[in-house]
Design a protein around this nucleic acid. Sequence first.
DNA 1: GAGATCATGTAACCAGTTACATGATTCA
DNA 2: TGAATCATGTAACTGGTTACATGATCTC
Lengths: 180, 180
Amino acid sequence: MALAHAVMSLLAHKAYTGYEIAKEFEGSIGYFWQATHQQIYRELKKLEKQGWVSVEVIPQGKTLDKKVYHLTELGRQNLIEWIDQECELGSIREDILVKIFSGYLVSKNILLQQLEKHRRQHMKKLAVYEDIAKKFDHSPEKLLADELCKYMTLRRGIICEQEWIRWCEESIEMLGNMKG
Amino acid sequence: MALAHAVMSLLAHKAYTGYEIAKEFEGSIGYFWQATHQQIYRELKKLEKQGWVSVEVIPQGKTLDKKVYHLTELGRQNLIEWIDQECELGSIREDILVKIFSGYLVSKNILLQQLEKHRRQHMKKLAVYEDIAKKFDHSPEKLLADELCKYMTLRRGIICEQEWIRWCEESIEMLGNMKG
DNA sequence: GAGATCATGTAACCAGTTACATGATTCA
DNA sequence: TGAATCATGTAACTGGTTACATGATCTC
């Protein structure tokens, strides 16, 4: 159910086209919830049926109409109620850990390569997040509530990347110390 | 494709029944890959069709036969090749972050409750992992390769829980400092 | 005797991914 | 003029979740 709420989260800020929502899922909200444009178009239709969003159709003449989505009052209420409900911990599915788990089947070098590559990927992501963080005024007392909320999710992204890097480095060292 | 490989990872150690594999997905491997017994029975059938696992049927007389699964040489080769292939970063879908993202729509108290609850859940998980870690000899030079591999994935679990707790605490403090 | 655990599965549904498809506009 | 981006979608498939179902054995 949370994709619906992720979409509504965006629409709580402002109206969006499906395309723009898909773009946001590549950045900002995409740092903690991934979705493709196909999923989003499908989800928006469901949300409309339930009356949680409304559509403003902007005719484009020759090509397909542009559709701007708005969060309805019903949708807003639903989102607010959802926030207060109990939530499960997200489920984890990390290829790299499956690889490490059976890493004893392959050579040390292959594992080290995987870890190095992984480390580099997370360094890249971290650099991106830290860049975005610079744009925020870092004193929480000065941030508006909605900016602070965004900033908190960004902090989560930063911490996540830092810890992946820490784990990669630790693991590389452990493998180095390993006999054989 | 990685559920298949997660299952094969287990079978690389020893033969298992579907039920036992499902149990492992609640502990050990379940710390980084979740799957239900329904998924596992379905996956085992696929793996058998592809010749990556073989089944040893143990008749139980009155009730359904017990089925013990073994990794075939083909399966083992496939797993080894998979480990060396490029892998994507796992995708993240965290309800709590969607909630925080639109947290400005609700009262500070509701957010604090969510964060506190989340923190407690991760503290519990951390305690479990740290308990398991105690059973390992902590010097990597002394661990056998397969034990070290398991230990590395466990370390990832521990770091992951620590970072969640760190983020929850940081966020609680930020909310505390917020005006309004 | 009741409840937990062992052990197997089917069916339906929902969510996520991949492939395919169209056409306008913008910029180098 | 060709590539990138804007903007919309359908279809098929795969993977994950929820609900239902059966029956044996073990332990209190």
